[in-house]
Nucleic acid binder design. Structure first.
Lengths: 224, 224
DNA sequence: CTTCCCTTCGACACTCAGTGCCATTATGAT
DNA sequence: ATCATAATGGCACTGAGTGTCGAAGGGAAG
């Protein structure tokens, strides 16, 4: 398997996670996810099928890149929230901040999300990633409310925050010109209000924090 | 393939969806889901592997039974709610009612849910079923708020209602003596309140309606 | 330059899910 | 008895994912 660290010895790797992702996303865009076999990707990348699985443990993981690192950033952002911010507003700001993406990768991000939320196989798989995401939110809520992350309230909040975020993604995908930040803020604002009104609640996005590395889905090319 | 309707002609079917589910759940309980192959199930049921796939199109579907019929019942229950009930309280009551299960099948239901929410392969697959579930909720919310089911608000509410319900299931699974109805009502009540308080909101479960056929997950054995 | 060491590569074989094809079998109707 | 019908189950195939193992391609030591 490709090692991170500074590999000084042995045969050099013949490709990278980033390159494989690039090749694969192109194929997915052309023929579709299910119509592209791992064999196809490996051939297009000039490696053996077996070698592909040394870079990504499955065809599904290809689309997610280095999600866990992104999660760490959200955990840090939530943890840095001052206690004067109400819990649900902190969650709202954290999720919105997590999803602030640089305009230059917006197209690629859109394509990736369209796959994740549009291809049944990937929709299903996304649940497993989202469970980790929920874990981060639940931890924060647990810390705020003084209970365990395994208790009902943190898990309900996490589930609901995720639900609101996914609904926002879906909305964003429908409109090529939509502003993801605004939609997310709206959805999570309504959640915080208990869906009590039909009108959207006031925009309460706090001053844009120093944009933390957003979820770009880019694979860790460490050890390149 | 086995046909519903009254089959008068041809070779009789050699088993049923119900029987296969029973056999399979026993094997899953013994060895685990991933450790049980379709071959194993077919052999245990005394049929060929190929025939298994004529009863269930995948090993995953086995666990879900006739989910779509159950959904119809929830759709009907929501649709029958009077306009005087606030939207989120109607959702709350509808979801709680949907999950009212007869005590005699509680054990089986618990085993099924433990699989669905505990085995990664099934967790992932559950998302696709839950999407249908969300569709039912979104339709109701759309009708209530006078917008389309594809709009942001209905989808956010549906996602959040599902999130609260799943968190409640998880809580229920942790405690063998827990009362699913109470936990669900609590979780959805908190959602309706926007998670504004730490204390659980008042129990607002309406008088138990004539228990509509609950989600039992039992396969349609029609045409037996 | 040669040799050794280390790491990645890729071929092969295997399991298991899922699908198409088709001959076989069991039944009711004629 | 014969025929039409519908389910069965064997065979072969694709595609994902895994274990194994020899070969390839480098740096470093001699």
């Amino acid at each position: 398997m490709p090692r991170r660290g500074v590999a000084r010895l042995g045969r050099p790797r013949s490709t990278s996670r980033a390159e494989l992702q690039e090749v694969a996303l192109r194929l997915f865009a052309d023929r579709g996810f299910d119509e592209t076999s791992v064999e196809d990707i490996a051939t297009a990348a000039g490696i053996g099928r077996r070698t592909f699985f040394r870079y990504y443990s499955s065809k599904l993981d290809l689309v997610w890149g280095d999600f866990e690192t992104e999660l760490e950033h959200m955990r840090a952002a939530l943890g840095a929230t001052g206690p004067e911010v109400p819990m649900m507003q902190a969650v709202r700001a954290g999720v919105v901040g997590f999803n602030r993406i640089p305009p230059e990768i917006a197209t690629q991000h859109r394509q990736r999300l369209a796959l994740i939320l549009g291809v049944p196989t990937l929709i299903a798989n996304s649940t497993l990633r989202f469970a980790q995401w929920r874990g981060v939110v639940a931890e924060f809520v647990a810390a705020r409310t003084g209970c365990g992350a395994e208790d009902l309230l943190p898990r309900v909040v996490a589930h609901c925050a995720l639900g609101a975020a996914v609904a926002a993604y879906e909305e964003w995908l429908q409109d090529p010109d939509a502003d993801l930040t605004a939609i997310l803020d709206d959805a999570l604002g309504r959640l915080a209000a208990g869906f009590a009104t039909t009108a959207p609640p006031a925009r309460a996005t706090p001053p844009p924090p120093p944009p933390p590395p957003p979820f770009t889905g880019s694979p860790s090319s460490a050890g390149r």
